[in-house]
Design a protein around this nucleic acid. Structure first.
Lengths: 343, 343
DNA sequence: CTGTTAGCGCTTTCAT
DNA sequence: ATGAAAGCGCTAACAG
């Protein structure tokens, strides 16, 4: 029978014959004791099989844990299926891993941050979470918060200028009197269905990137003397190929047929491209398509996609760095219009 | 000035005028007090802005946290770039999210589990971690452990029969005297380089799925009277398109040219397919290619891939369920040979 | 059904 | 440079 009860700092101190504070200092504050003594203690710990202070207790005492919660917009598997989110995560994990910070994955559908808030040093919140109560909770917490693609007052954030990007890519399309514009939008209204927006109430229009993008499209078209009506704006509840295909098909079979489709994500645009081709339409001759995000796959499709490219890996890196720095800045990242052959 | 100091259970109890145990029970053990009192207390807590017991303290006291560490084979961004890992994660998150368990992402490159072990209820370890010391640590821990694609004695595990699957897909290839076999293997030797295996020492041959697969290939070929020499076995250090392309090109430009390429992952196979086509070789006429894993993309390529399909989402779901159940079983999941046009 | 109390394992003043 | 002691906030015996 070996030692059943787990070793604690106190026991170890007793065995070695020093006070618990000294052992603690050996691990945490090398300057508080002689080099010799420290090394002796550390060596003894290894021999005893003591692997250092219990992190849960340490966290309770110190109030820090070296864990940060990464709040995803939706359920966890979202991150896995969305290439933009994946890229972002890659950026975040790059930086945090380098800094020995661990990541707790947290779903934007969770009812509350309470179950984890005491375990983490703060939050990196990627996109407005599906459950908007989480935002209210983040506003109140005393822990660090960095938001991405939306803002919370007095918190660090990372964004791109979605409105300007949307306007720019709209202006990128050759003007013609024949143009009929339609928008395939992302989560514009609370509905979980693919449907036209019509006069439905728009979702929390303040913060959502979708509304900034819609504003951009609208603004550019207005300047061209074109009015975008809600009948030609579709709501796709999430950036998912199948749902996008439904919206695309509806749009492409509307009479008169829209011949410029402004898509709020590359996933939607790629799905639209596929639907158009399935309907025997030529892109860009019969239908022009533009996307948003600039995912890798948009450059492998045929034709390649004209889209707004944003650097999602960098976004993640900057978010993580801002978190570490603790600086409360609202950072705006650059985007580029990526010329493809789809318009 | 509002209340600076955070509310604690004790303070709340004092304010309400009951003992701290009663408040604790109101949150944790409804049966220990009258329904009426419980509701009163809970209501008061809400009014006071107390959101429930501090989870870090609770965890220290109870020794559980409702957090499980998911150990990835390599650095965190690995998961993002590998479709098989992504699928697996999706399965895990499905089940754990349903059970209100949070996930701490942990890199297989980390030096030690010590920094997090006290925060989690256990480990789900996907593939043998890059840092093999982690395995030794997992062997020792008193917390729950589920391993996937490798085993630890007396721990729950999920596997497929890699050897049999590899043998089966090898036998699936039409026999011919003209066949020259080559293997594009995954992490067969410690080298971080793409290279032929030759007489290098094979990596921890016991546990690795790569060696099980190699054994399967070898066994099937031996039964056909064919000897696989190490000169025609390549090592690809990770399942990554670029590295695979290098190996593929080496293999395809070897004289005499191998005309059957056994690839240990679909990523490698797809990359090989591309290289073959770039070299003007017809698949399967000039070169036959088989993969492993059955990722979605293998069915979208042209020609489609003949491969071993394993259900990675299910793997993740079962891993999570085994973790929750706490049953120490070694579960073997089914695979299927998926007929494509690449051989 | 309710209250008192002893820790969970640690860090950190404050003395020495 | 080292040690004694006070909690961090909570849960679970146990007593009432």
């Amino acid at each position: 029978m070996t030692k059943r009860p787990a070793l604690t700092l106190k026991k170890v101190a007793e065995i070695i014959g020093v006070s618990n504070a000294t052992v603690s200092n050996a691990f945490n504050r090398p300057d508080q004791l002689s080099k010799k003594k420290r090394e002796e203690i550390l060596k003894s710990c290894i021999e005893l099989g003591y692997h250092g202070p219990n992190q849960a207790a340490r966290s309770l005492r110190k109030g820090t844990s070296d864990i940060v919660a990464l709040i995803l917009p939706d359920s966890l598997n979202y991150m896995v299926s969305d290439p933009v989110a994946s890229q972002f995560m890659q950026g975040v994990t790059d930086i945090l891993e380098q800094n020995n910070i661990n990541i707790l994955l947290f779903s934007g559908r969770s009812p509350s941050i309470n179950k984890i808030v005491d375990f983490v040093d703060g939050f990196i919140c990627y996109g407005a979470p599906r459950n908007s109560e989480l935002v209210a909770q983040l506003e109140k917490t005393t822990k660090k918060v960095v938001t991405i693609d939306f803002n919370i007052a007095n918190r660090a954030s990372i964004n791109i200028d979605n409105e300007q990007a949307a306007a720019e890519i709209t202006n990128h399309i050759t003007q013609s009197d024949d143009n009929i514009f339609a928008v395939l939008g992302l989560r514009l209204i609370p509905s979980e269905q693919v449907c036209r927006v019509y006069d439905n109430e728009l979702l929390d229009s303040q913060s959502s990137i979708s509304h900034r993008r819609l504003d951009g499209y609208t603004k550019a078209l207005t300047e061209q003397g074109i009015t975008l009506t809600n009948e030609l704006i579709w709501n796709v509840p999430e950036s998912n190929i199948k749902l996008a295909a439904i919206a695309a098909r509806e749009a492409l079979t509307t009479e008169p047929r829209p011949n410029v489709l402004l898509c709020m994500s590359d996933m939607i645009a790629l799905s639209t491209l596929r639907e158009a081709q399935a309907l025997g339409l030529r892109v860009p001759e019969d239908v022009k398509i533009v996307g948003f995000d600039g995912i890798d796959e948009s450059q492998r499709s045929s034709p390649t996609l004209t889209t707004v490219h944003q650097n999602s890996v960098l976004k993640g890196q900057r978010a993580a760095q801002l978190f570490l720095d603790g600086s409360i800045v609202e950072e705006i990242l650059a985007y580029t219009v990526q010329q493809g052959n789809s318009c």
